[in-house]
Structure formats: structure tokens, C-alpha cells
Design a protein around this nucleic acid. Structure first.
Lengths: 140, 140
DNA sequence: GTAATTGCAAATAATTTGCTGGGTG
DNA sequence: CACCCAGCAAATTATTTGCAATTAC
């Protein structure tokens, strides 16, 4: 069943898309589109933000990157495709991986309770990173 | 520790804010700001969308409503303050509660693994609601 | 060659904000 | 009567889209 209702379009390669994928894979910082733009620009000064967004969507649809959306504001992207969770600092916005945690979530139970066919789930933690924690303790 | 770094402002009551809270409490549909706007308008034709947003933020800060943010697009609001999870249909966008599920999530474990002080977590399921499931099966 | 892709700029969409006047405590 | 709040419209922010030129296969 094709959930997107979309006819697959044959992708060509492009230097821009390759670069964007490279940039994402070369960092662990869960970058935003804008961060990726600035970084890609260093190698390819004429690249445009529209191209960044278009390719991020293509790469996400292809399953080559993950799009992370936290409550507020902007999308972040992750080149690590393994299923894992994230923590986001409510002060500085930094996002880090939650390592080695086993999903304790039962999609099957949710399917039974709701009648929905569950496709995926997202588990996000929000809190204070060690740095902000220390900084805030000093203020108080 | 005041995480907002904000001086509390003394709230006055307002007919508009009361109405908005009423609207949210009178539905189980996890409405968007726009839906609330249309509904509130029936009782108070001159109310403006800006007022809706300002009051939704105030009510959220007061803890009288929950703001739900799913991956894509718009915020939804929930008058049910009890900790619970949600499922969202990836086809029609409908959001329903996941009833009676016990959180199997250990914030403490995440704190130990990351050094973050965990404040809250959000667990969202995405999938297909029974109606969309049936409709899509007929298409295929 | 033909169809996908680009850069650029303009368009969207959701939400926030500035202002001026009205309502609440 | 101080100051919070409303309505309105304009501003902001992140993202998407239209278009003509370019590039990949």
C-alpha cells in the first residue's frame, strides 16, 4: 500500500544533493536547514536555501535521512537512520541522542486500544542540558 | 527554579479568555487555533485570531491547557491536563487519545545516560485511523 | 532530447507583535 | 486610574513554489 499516493519520480543525482547528504552525515549535531545551508555554502557558494529544503524533503522521502520535529520551531535532520530517541534542552535548544535505550513502547497495545494502524512513534524528552543546568543554578 | 526567567504578570479575567477555555473544554477533538477561532466567533463575532493565539499561550503558561505539537504543521490544544498520549492519523490529521496506557518510559534512565535533567517527555504515535484504513483498502 | 534540478524571488502559512483604545480590579 | 487586554493589521519565521535556465542520463 502506497501511503503517499504518489507516483515515484525517477531521481537523478545532483552535486547539490550529494553535498547536503555529506554535510548531514558529517555531523552529530542534528542540524537545522539553515545550519546545513551555511555549511554547504562553504563548498558551493551559490547553493540556495530553496535547494536545501527541496533536497531535504527528497532525502527524507527516500529514507536517507530522518526529519526530527520538536515542539517549537524548526525541523532538524539526522543522518543516523537507526531508531533512537532524542533529548532537547529547553534552554539552549541543543539536541542529543539518547543512547542504548530500548523502546519500551508497545505499538500493538495502542493498535488494540485505538483501532489505528500504527506506523511509527516518536518519543522526545525535554529538559535541561548539563551546561544550562549549571548556569541556571548559578543565577538562582 | 523558575525556568521561564519571567516575572509573573497578574492576569485579569476577560470574556474572551473565558470563552476560549470553554470552547477547548467542550470538545474532545484536540482543536487547532483556527478551529477554536471559528467556534468562538459564533458567540463573539468580533473576536480576533490574534486574541485566540495570545490567550492560548497564556492559558498554556498558566497550565490550564496543554499544547500538542505534532510533527507537521499546526499546534493543537487539549483541555485534558492528565498525562496521556496521542495518536494522529497521517491521512486525515485526526488526533485521538490513547486511553489507559501506562507510560513505560524511564526519565531517570535517560537522566543517567545523558546528564540532562529531564522535565517532561512526549510520546506520539502516527498511523492510520480506522476510516482512512478502510478507504485506502478500497482504492488499492 | 527530455525530464529532473537549480537559483532566485515571490508566495504561503502559522504565529507573533505594535499600536491605540477599551475594560477590569 | 493603572495597567491588562482587545481588535486590527503589519511583521516575522520557516518552508514551499513558480519560472526560466541548466544539468544529468
Amino acid at each position: 500500500m502506497n501511503l503517499n499516493h504518489q507516483v515515484e519520480k525517477k531521481l537523478k543525482t545532483s552535486r547539490q544533493r550529494n553535498l547536503i547528504l555529506c554535510v548531514i552525515r558529517s555531523t552529530h549535531c542534528h542540524p537545522t536547514a539553515d545550519w546545513i545551508f551555511e555549511r554547504a555554502r562553504k563548498d558551493m557558494p551559490n547553493i540556495s536555501l530553496g535547494t536545501i529544503y527541496r533536497n531535504l524533503n527528497l532525502l527524507r522521502d527516500e529514507g536517507k535521512i530522518q526529519e526530527l520535529r520538536f515542539g517549537n520551531s524548526v525541523s532538524r535532520y539526522d543522518g543516523d537512520l537507526r531508531s533512537h530517541y532524542h533529548v532537547r534542552c529547553m534552554e539552549c535548544g541543543e539536541v542529543v541522542d539518547v543512547p542504548h535505550i530500548v523502546p519500551l513502547v508497545s505499538s500493538q497495545q495502542v493498535e488494540e486500544l485505538t483501532g489505528y494502524r500504527i506506523h511509527k512513534h516518536r518519543l522526545e524528552f525535554t529538559g535541561l542540558c548539563p551546561d544550562c543546568l549549571k548556569r541556571l543554578d548559578n543565577i538562582e
